[in-house]
């Protein structure tokens, strides 16, 4: 896990208190259980964060600027190897949403060849192996590579979505990592605000 720079109200003190109250053994047990759950969840096809992820993908467009030359053309979000995410993202088209003035189109992408017509490419877990090729083929092109597979951010994807459990709130929060180097030279301008909210990969 990356450095946790965020600080929320429930700080380590509280956690410390929790451990003190419950006891070390049971705490460990709980944590394991949660990890397992999380893993299973992540492995399962039914991802409770899927809608949220889709929303995040959409929200990213508010904080990233694609090259001005593309103005007037539809904003294409391509999804590779994740039909559930594609379906979730497709809801963005009904009703049709926009990015600025550009109408959002959601497309599934089977091969790397059509990558040039995508503004955002969501790479599913199934296509995790092809990441390197995707990265190489989209190098220098204004395509935002987004995935929810762990480690994507270090491997060339710009944004990696991941969930974080918030014990005190009894929920999992969706967060993401941004790799600035993956965004370099692509012609994409990313707002500082996005970095503020994200985990920035060094």
């Amino acid at each position: 896990m990356g450095a946790n720079r965020s600080r929320d109200n429930i700080g380590p003190r509280r956690r410390a208190v929790l451990v003190k109250r419950v006891g070390l053994g049971p705490a460990l047990l709980l944590l394991t259980a949660i990890a397992l759950i999380l893993a299973s969840v992540s492995a399962a096809a039914d991802d409770p964060l899927r809608a949220l992820k889709a929303a995040f993908v959409y929200k990213f467009t508010s904080f990233i600027d694609w090259p001005a030359a593309q103005a007037g053309t539809p904003f294409v979000i391509c999804i590779m190897a994740d039909p559930a995410m594609q379906a979730a993202l497709a809801e963005l088209t009904e009703p049709a949403r926009r990015v600025g003035e550009r109408v959002i189109r959601v497309r599934g992408l089977g091969s790397i060849d059509g990558i040039d017509g995508c503004q955002i490419l969501f790479i599913g877990a199934a296509a995790a192996g092809r990441l390197g090729a995707i990265v190489r083929s989209s190098a220098g092109k204004p395509v935002l590579l987004v995935g929810d597979t762990a480690g994507f951010a270090g491997k060339g994807a710009a944004i990696e979505l991941f969930g974080q459990s918030d014990i005190f709130r009894k929920k999992v929060r969706l967060r993401f990592r941004i790799d600035p180097t993956a965004l370099k030279g692509r012609g994409l301008t990313v707002s500082a605000q996005l970095y503020d909210v994200a985990e920035v990969v060094q």
């Binding site: 965020s6 600080r7 929320d8 109200n9 508010s62 904080f63 605000q193 996005l194 503020d196 909210v197």
Partner: peptide
Amino acid sequence: DNSLSALDFDAPQTAAKN
């Protein structure tokens, strides 16, 4: 304006930092 992303992405810590 600076807190928009924090609100949007539900990042209260960021908001607080802001």
